[in-house]
Amino acid sequence: MSGFLEALSSHAFLQHALAAGVLASIACGIVGSYVVVKRIGYLAGGVAHTVLGGMGVAYFLGKSPIGGALVAALLAALIIGWVSLRFRQHEDTIIGALWAVGMAVGILFISRTPGYNVDLMSYLFGNILMVPREDLLLVAGLDGLIVALVLMFRKPFLAVCFDEEFARLRGVPVEVFYLGLLLMVALTVVILIQVVGLVLVLALLTLPAAIAGQYARSLAAMMVAATLLGIAFTSLGLALSFEPDLPAGATIVLLAGVAYLLSALARGAWLRRRRA
């Protein structure tokens, strides 16, 4: 750990990595809380994995993969949102299909791209140590967008998550805010791909929020707590993985998973004791 702190003060790439973790945790804490209380983890997973298709196409065309990811994520969110609203009965089947097809498209395009394919692994599993400065700025911008949207529309978002039918009866355009929620998921997925890669996105999106949700008394408190937990997991995961040279993304996710397990066990024991 001391080696990490020493390296942190001297290496810009580590400072960038730490900043990426903190910035990602903000989006994660806010949007992840919505995903957890609205129980749309599966939809979020669908958006995350479909993104590989867009990244693959962008990579093949020689464009910025992160730009491709952004376009693909927003497109995937709209398609999956539409499927979810229109075909609620078969939602899981259709999303499962999109999930797999999106990944297949990505793999095909990446395999057809001439040159050295090392990037595929970093899309899938992230590479927080290689986040360039301009991507950091993009992530900060997306964070700002998400925070602004949530501050402006916190009432209708809460209404749609808590009780969709009641929101509709109060004249809230439920479909618009539901799609808005998924578009924010898409933005968060793009941010998280930088940090943990798209395979592990779902864990970082849901685990901090799920832990926070076990204790929080309001959605706002849940978002703040989930953000702080996210910062703790990404920073600690980065530090732990640095010296033994472990994959940072996987270390971060494992840390979050262990914390969730411990929290669930502790809470279960506490509830049992209170009842006894």
């Binding site: 808590f162 009780d163 009866l169 959605l219």
Partner: peptide, 25 residues
């Protein structure tokens, strides 16, 4: 709806103001 949704009594009741109050903020 889910019993474990993190929302207070007052926040729940305030949702009844939607449709009458502004959507923003």
């Amino acid at each position: 709806f889910a019993r474990d949704f993190p929302i207070s009594v007052e926040e729940t009741v305030l949702l009844g103001r939607l449709g009458t109050t502004r959507l923003l903020g």
